[in-house]
Amino acid sequence: MPKPVTLTTAGGVGHLQLNRPEAANTINMPLAKALGEAVDRVAEDDSVKAVLLTGSGKRFCAGGDISAFAESSDQGRFLSELASTIDAAVQALESLQKPVVAAVHGAVAGGGLGIMLAADVIIAAEGTSFVFAYPSIGLTPDCGSSASLPRAMGLHRALAFALSGRPLSADQALSQGLVTEVVVDPLTRAHEVVTAWMAGAPGALGDVRRMLREGSGLSRAEVGIREAATIGERMATAEAQCLIPAFLGR
């Protein structure tokens, strides 16, 4: 039976792929657990310096597997456990000290939005549809999207999107800050992004993504203390010791 999430590594890049194409990569318990396990392996593998996130088949992720929790004998308990499990995986992805690029296509709905927004750069295919989805079946968000969505779009745009029930086109998602780029071939463009990361200073980029993601939860004084400590630590790394002399010698 195919794994619900696959992880392949090559050239310092870890490729995480949601792999339930027959079910539009909807989130069930096996996928939620597998994503968390795969992200943990990426975190522990020092050879992986950057991450590519994709979905197999025709859609990136169509949200939760409604049939899975609709058939449960204790629907509320099952759904809470599923939400907790996939949230742990998304938090682990958000916390990686390695830059993440997502290539999305087809449809991104419900929990798929939260998974997607764990990436730092989001490349969308032309024609991709973005749907908040939860209220249409009487539910509320998971996968951290009640925090990540307004952070990406701004509060009022996020509220308008979430409350309207209407999907956003790829171009609308771009104009409202939900994605970074819209292209014909998002996978090729995402490979270009990670190739550029690997040719530069992926370790520094990992620290940058961590600092920017954590900065909003810190006071200005705490930000300054963390920045001073981190930049000092970075100075001792092989990356900095190689790149600074090269810069000075241009």
Rank of each mutant, 00 (worst) to 15 (best):
F60W: 05
S80T: 11
D46K: 13
K49Y: 10
G76H: 12
T85I: 03
S136K: 13
G138S: 03
E22Q: 15
G63S: 13
K58N: 11
K58T: 09
A43H: 00
L79C: 00
V42G: 01
R77V: 15
Q91W: 02
D120G: 09
G114Y: 05
R59Y: 09
L35R: 02
V131E: 15
V90I: 15
T140P: 00
A118V: 06
A32G: 02
M29Q: 08
L35C: 05
S73V: 14
A89Y: 01
H105K: 13
D120V: 03
C61E: 02
F130Y: 14
V100N: 09
D46R: 14
H105Y: 06
A23T: 15
M116E: 04
E37C: 00
N25R: 07
L52W: 09
L31N: 02
E37S: 08
A89P: 01
L113D: 01
A23G: 07
A107L: 15
P99A: 10
A83V: 04
S73A: 15
S84L: 10
T85E: 15
E126V: 12
A133N: 13
Q75Y: 01
D46W: 04
S73I: 11
P141A: 14
A38H: 01
Q97C: 05
I123L: 10
P135S: 12
E81C: 03
A32W: 03
V90Y: 00
G63R: 02
E37F: 01
A133S: 14
E126G: 10
K33D: 04
G110I: 08
V131I: 15
T140V: 12
G110S: 15
V101Q: 06
I122E: 04
L96F: 06
D40F: 00
A107T: 15
D46T: 14
K98A: 07
F132T: 02
S73P: 10
S84T: 11
A88W: 05
I137Q: 02
V48P: 10
A38W: 01
S47P: 02
D45C: 08
A88D: 13
L96P: 05
G63W: 04
T54R: 10
S56V: 00
V48E: 11
T54N: 07
Q97N: 11
D120K: 05
V100H: 06
T54C: 03
A24M: 14
E81M: 11
F69Q: 01
L96T: 09
G110A: 14
A23F: 14
A89E: 03
G106Q: 07
Q75G: 11
I123D: 03
N28S: 15
H105W: 07
A62N: 14
C61H: 02
E81W: 07
G55Q: 08
L31Q: 03
I123Y: 02
E22S: 13
